[in-house]
Design a protein around this nucleic acid. Structure first.
Lengths: 248, 248
DNA sequence: CTTGTATGTGTAAAAAATACACATTTTTGC
DNA sequence: GCAAAAATGTGTATTTTTTACACATACAAG
């Protein structure tokens, strides 16, 4: 046993009187946020890209992002980007990772905080003007078409999403409020890049007991319409368990 | 189906010629790293704290951290902090989260990137001089004893650790290279704050088949010595699986 | 009204997780 | 050296979860 008791405050240490002065002595860096905004359409996972407005990145694609204002928190900056670009205010958004490679921006050092955002691709009000904005199939993105380190950021965010969607009910943010089990399954299959057994998939979700049967059915499909369900977020929040189990 | 083809490059957009000038126009913020350095001792998970050197935080404890240098990557800054403070170079280190609350530092805005580090508490060469440094039992930390938002950073890092230790073989970084199954189990019990069945715990780890029987036994214990094992990281890296399974 | 297509359902087998008890080995104290 | 204390090491039965797999049904389209 060592150091279990909290030692007394030593009197010999010189304390810094002016915290603001200390901070003024720090080097400063430009800070941005970049949002990997995912949507689900045509049975594919897509990410929202914009033409880079930098000449040195001419023709390349970029994630939506912006500089973080002097008195703005990171989450707020990311929400602002989403609001300005999609018109949506209630969007799923989580911080994923911070990237700081010295050469990641051609103009000099910029540190960026990457966010993952999930939205219903048919629900927002994008202004896709002048072909600036584009929903790109995630698995078809090539490194050389992307500006900065945005291919790396997308890969990181996508891997984060693949992992998270298995452990948390994130995926519903990509679907309409009411969805069929087929839509849910194709979503999982697209994101995880696997084929799932339909009966076992349904059994799994029904046994979780978070799906509310709306009594409604699909419309405008050219086959037998499936039942529409809602995810019971309230019940999930109340009953979700913390223990996962050791497994690696 | 919408927007599946990549649109042509529009000719109407005005491109920014000077990327460096653009960056110069960005607001800048001081950036730091803070390391939640965890160790395992006396059957408890501990975190390494230091007396705050700020007068406004007089008597409070702080994580080890430092400002990020102008041409330094975040990981390098965190490694530097670890090297300078513990003398260790091969330390487990992962970025956890970036904190940006406007009032988190009394001297003004500072954004900090939190790292989680795991090390063998008996293995490093800490200079615990003048009672500056202190291994503190994680679950006994009180908000009011911590400087800045470091209680929040510790909580976030600890939760990250609780989750990660169940999914990845991180915990071995907290143990000696050769360890007994009891040590491993008490580590898991301390971090997860649960009691585990000894037989099932052993069965689980043996069935993973990553433990190498060293043929050696514990020494200096006052009871029947247990066998010592090593974790086979090489085998783990080769055979680890990616598919987790939907479960929430 | 026939064809095509996707929905909806159940069971058996295998695998994994859980609950649970006793003999063995070593140290310590007498 | 012997008894007591303490922790190691092991197996089985039960339950739960996961997996594999096939057919009847409902609706749309022609």
């Amino acid at each position: 046993m060592r150091n279990t008791k909290i030692p007394a405050i030593p009197s010999t240490v010189t304390l810094i009187k002016d915290a603001a002065e200390l901070i003024n002595s720090y080097p400063q860096v430009p800070l941005t946020v970049d949002c990997a905004i995912f949507g689900f359409d045509d049975n594919k996972l897509k990410v929202l890209l914009i033409r880079s407005d930098l000449e040195v990145c001419h023709g390349k694609w970029s994630l939506l992002g912006d500089v973080v204002h002097a008195t703005e928190e990171l989450d707020d900056a990311a929400y602002r980007v989403l609001r300005e670009r999609t018109g949506m205010t209630d969007v799923y958004l989580k911080q994923v990772h911070t990237f700081s490679a010295l050469n990641r921006h051609p103009g000099g050092r910029v540190v960026t905080v990457a966010y993952c955002s999930l939205l219903n691709i048919r629900h927002h009000e994008l202004q896709i003007t002048e072909n600036e904005l584009h929903w790109q199939h995630v698995r078809s993105i090539r490194e050389k078409d992307m500006a900065f380190d945005h291919k790396l950021i997308i890969d990181t965010s996508y891997q984060w999403l693949q992992k998270s969607i298995q452990e948390h009910p994130l995926g519903f943010n990509l679907l309409p409020e009411k969805f069929s089990l087929r839509e849910l399954q194709t979503l999982y299959e697209a994101i995880l890049n696997v084929e799932l057994d339909r009966r076992n998939f349904r059994k799994k979700f029904f046994s979780m007991d978070f799906l509310i049967d709306t009594g409604e059915f699909e419309e405008d499909v050219k086959h037998r319409p499936g039942k529409l369900y809602q995810f019971d977020f309230a019940k999930y929040e109340k009953t979700k368990r913390k223990w996962i189990g050791i497994d690696f």
